[in-house]
Design a protein around this nucleic acid. Structure first.
Length: 217
DNA sequence: ACATTAAGTGATT
DNA sequence: AATCACTTAATGT
């Protein structure tokens, strides 16, 4: 066993080993490769063809829907233990990505080549379960995202967004600019500035330049 | 000291 | 809730 495999196995032990059977872990170790990605690196962009699916070991990946003229909307975040099963099905169909995925917080990710992993669906019950669960979970998050778009006012959306961020980063102190929030929610900076000021005055957050602290989380 | 980037605000639609 | 136009504040060089 080479060092790469040993490292991989070690990383998997953290989280996935309790989820997958030993034989499956063995296969993952053999075909997968691990990569460390830094903030703002793009995993995949809309229209690109996917060849691998990611298993997130740590860090955070942000999944975004993008409109042609640069307008974006954040759909959900992927964290430890997550994969994007959507990308998996996309891979099987050899179709192009509907989403853009960028690293939100430095991440270690195992990439699995799709042609190798397809048979796992048949051979490994835990893998099947994992993929189905993941698909289900993404669907739920997508619906949540539709709900917030359709039914929530912008001030509620901002607050939810901040809370989601805190949850995912495990830190109530966020380093973020008004502009970045505006981009993620597809609105304008001025609107965010005003709503944040409102939240600040209501005592729900504390905000200063480049920083927001979510209170009573 | 100056330039750049982030944030705050009134007025208008 | 969005846009414009402008101001003020914070930060980098």
């Amino acid at each position: 066993m080479n060092t790469q495999e040993i490292i991989l196995r070690e990383k998997l032990d953290d989280y996935f080993s309790s989820m997958f059977e030993d034989e499956l872990i063995d296969e993952i170790v053999q075909v997968g490769y691990i990569d460390k990605l830094k903030n703002d690196e793009i995993l995949i962009d809309i229209g690109e063809t996917m060849t691998h699916i990611p298993l997130i070991l740590n860090g955070v990946v942000k999944v975004i829907r993008k409109e042609k003229k640069g307008h974006e909307l954040v759909l959900y975040f992927l964290e430890r233990g997550d994969t994007c099963a959507i990308s998996f099905v996309n891979c099987l169909n050899r179709s192009k990505s509907l989403f853009k995925a960028v690293v939100e917080k430095d991440a270690e990710i195992i990439f699995l080549p799709v042609d190798k992993i397809e048979p796992w669906l048949i051979n490994y019950k835990t893998w099947r379960q994992y993929i189905i669960d993941s698909y289900h979970f993404r669907l739920i998050e997508m619906v949540e995202s539709i709900d917030s778009l359709a039914f929530m006012k912008m001030n509620e959306r901002v607050y939810k967004y901040l809370n989601d961020k805190v949850k995912i980063n495990k830190d109530v102190n966020l380093e973020i600019t008004h502009q970045e929030i505006a981009d993620d929610l597809n609105t304008s900076r001025v609107v965010i500035t005003r709503l944040l000021k409102q939240l600040h005055d209501e005592g729900k957050i504390y905000s200063s330049r480049n920083k927001i602290r979510v209170l009573n989380f």
